[in-house]
């Protein structure tokens, strides 16, 4: 069976060919299947964000192989990468993740708008339902600036999931939130995972949350230190 994503021997160097060249990832390999809920943990500077950006096709790898649904991505040009990103991926970032000039609802309909040039009423309904599902049924017309950090993050989750991509990448989605909101956001992601069978790859510094994922990959100094299933169910 083909894996949803499969990385083999990934190397990543910054400033290639310059005096300050630095290899950040030294041969990372792992795979994720449809429906997995995976935490990526590790000390600061270990390369978690770099790895997530590579998985998200936002950054190119220096050496190694990265396949999405069996297809090698390293030879794709920018347009090809963008198409795969549209087809497979949703993103949730730590902060500054919403477009401040657009309302919560407009942020959630943006993925549809950029794909088709318009938002059908069905897509509009779907976005509303999504926002209602993340508990923002009454704040859809508000701008991000009028929402709390936890609410913003829930809008971002709604936006990442609205087109039901097979894989959602989240870089410290709760890193900026207090404990209560961070629990809420995490529970929401677990619920979406259960409802839509979406795979999640979540970078987190919070060991409590990591323990509540099905599988934990630990990155230390650009190597995978451990990759364990926890048997957790949320």
């Amino acid at each position: 069976m083909t894996r949803l994503i499969e990385l083999v021997g990934i190397h990543k160097s910054y400033n290639l060919g310059l005096p300050n060249e630095a290899e950040v990832l030294h041969g990372v390999s792992f795979a994720i299947d449809r429906g997995e809920f995976v935490a990526l943990i590790g000390p600061s500077g270990s390369g978690k964000s770099t790895l997530l950006n590579i998985v998200g096709l936002l950054e190119r790898l220096t050496a190694g192989s990265y396949r999405i649904e069996g297809e090698e991505t390293s030879g794709l040009d920018d347009a090809g990468l963008t198409l795969r990103r549209r087809a497979v991926l949703g993103f949730v970032f730590q902060f500054h993740h919403l477009l401040p000039a657009f309302s919560a609802l407009e942020n959630v309909t943006l993925p549809a708008l950029m794909r088709e040039g318009r938002v059908t009423s069905a897509q509009q309904e779907r976005a509303r339902a999504m926002l209602a599902a993340v508990g923002l049924g009454n704040d859809m017309q508000k701008r991000p600036g009028e929402l709390s950090g936890g609410m913003q993050q829930r809008v971002a989750i709604a936006r990442a999931l609205v087109l039901e991509p097979p894989l959602v990448l989240a870089d410290e989605p709760t890193g900026n939130l207090d404990r209560a909101s961070s629990d809420e956001v995490f529970v929401l992601m677990r619920r979406m995972h259960a409802e839509l069978n979406t795979s999640f790859l979540i970078v987190t510094h919070d060991p409590r949350l990591a323990a509540r994922c099905d599988r934990v990959i630990e990155l230390v100094d650009g190597h995978i230190e451990s990759d364990t299933s926890t048997g957790a169910t949320g």
Partner: peptide, 16 residues
């Protein structure tokens, strides 16, 4: 820059 980065991440093409 940040908004452009977000738009690109969620699927906007260079042409767009």
């Amino acid at each position: 820059q940040r908004e452009i980065g977000i738009l690109r991440a969620i699927g906007a093409t260079q042409g767009q």
